[in-house]
Nucleic acid binder design. Structure first.
Lengths: 239, 239
DNA sequence: CAAAAACGAGAGCAGTGCTCTTGACAGGAG
DNA sequence: CTCCTGTCAAGAGCACTGCTCTCGTTTTTG
């Protein structure tokens, strides 16, 4: 539905697109310093030299602005993960590279990471538009797992088999992920997918802890801890 | 520093303690419905039949109220984890029980969980008073690991040895944890502690994802997924 | 060219955290 | 007993927020 920018549009539409970008850029700037609930429409408008009510012609509400920022953040993080996952090499190295990419992006954009993986603003309901960008990182990770399985790694190595309901949820999730990212079926076994989900939650938890200061001077430069855990979890997902 | 309640105090001091409790209770109630940044001092005061400025005699600022709620949440979650960790049985079962306790508490008090493990309010600086309650859950988990090592489980099973800097950080963290929770040294090996941290971050990540709707209809009743991952990670930390 | 749509500016409403002042009440000292 | 000091609730007020509505102006469109 989104038009290509600068594609033979009115001067007005081009100005509108430009201003929309500037508003988002300024909002991102304030987000980085003041955080998510410190983001003020009036302050954004003030900084842009316009009046607050004029901003409502571009975003219907503060939540709409936040949603736009969330989608951009999902897309940026997703792109970083996809790029890292697309490197040459064996699956485990690609998995570790993707994990590192996620962490690097999170460290570079902590407030935007908090926006998408931190506690949700209560009363804020994520619209449908966010679920496709949100699926990019998981999809990139599952892509690695699919390649790993294609290379002949055993699909069911863990001694602990999945209970039936969990196996079904995993299969449904695989289908949903395929539907949202495009036609091609990732086609990983439920066992592999569940291991991937476990590693994915570990990654998110570790990045969150580091970002939100939960390690408080314990593992303050968390590089060594992160590299070690990424390697351990890579061996867990791709045995 | 906190006095025992109702310990031969003035009627005035008792009334003050009582009102402080009521304020926190009402704030918690609003937290559960409106979320962290929906918590309004004026609304709390209104609900308690007093005027907003009167509230400042009990909490110097909104952040102070939040800090009090955070400490209470850490303590409640810590108590739940400690109780679960104190059950009889082999270490793995106790580990799983502790994980389940954390999840149960989080599901029962989602906004309070978000308060302590979600994205921090920017500009809010957690005071020193929070670090001791915050250490209770990690301490309970480490306690299980100490018992596991005492039962003769190998302290250095993982084939992948720790790099030197990580080993040192782990040792320092163990010492810091012992200092904050009391005199007795938990005394787990760096290898075990690091495995514990990895599992701990996985637990936090999984609970956060479930709570914050990151699984969006994929693993909607996440019970099966959680039990499976808890079992997997328990086998990881206690090999 | 004229109608229509989009736009920026301003005023205004209800809400917020927080400060300051005012007056009422309690409890201990003399 | 009186006085006096510290504590308390209440109210007014400041600066800020998101959001709505109206009013001219500008630009696009028929």
């Amino acid at each position: 539905m989104a038009r290509k920018p600068n594609a033979g549009q009115n001067a007005r539409e081009r100005a509108r697109a430009e201003l929309t970008r500037e508003i988002k850029a300024e909002a991102r700037r304030q987000l980085a310093t003041s955080g998510a609930d410190g983001l003020s429409l009036r302050a954004v408008a003030r900084e842009l030299g316009m009046v607050s009510s004029a901003l409502y012609r571009y975003f219907a509400s503060r939540d709409d602005l936040l949603t736009a920022l969330i989608i951009d953040a999902y897309d940026a993080l997703g792109a970083a993960a996809e790029k890292a996952a697309a490197t040459e090499g064996e699956p485990r190295a690609r998995w570790i590279a993707a994990c590192r990419a996620v962490r690097s992006w999170a460290l570079a954009h902590p407030q935007e990471y908090a926006l998408i993986y931190g506690s949700p603003v209560p009363g804020y309901r994520a619209p449908e538009t966010t679920i496709a960008p949100a699926a990019r990182v998981p999809a990139a990770l599952v892509g690695i797992l699919r390649d790993a399985e294609a290379e002949g790694l055993p699909a069911q190595t863990p001694p602990r088999a999945l209970p039936e309901d969990l196996r079904e949820q995993a299969a449904a999730t695989t289908r949903a992920l395929a539907a949202v990212t495009g036609g091609k079926d990732p086609g990983v076994s439920p066992e592999t997918l569940v291991r991937g989900v476990i590693a994915w939650t570990q990654l998110a938890g570790m990045v969150s802890f580091e970002l939100f200061g939960q390690f408080a001077n314990g593992f303050d430069p968390a590089d060594a801890l992160f590299d070690h855990s990424a390697a351990q979890m890579a061996a867990f997902v791709i045995p």
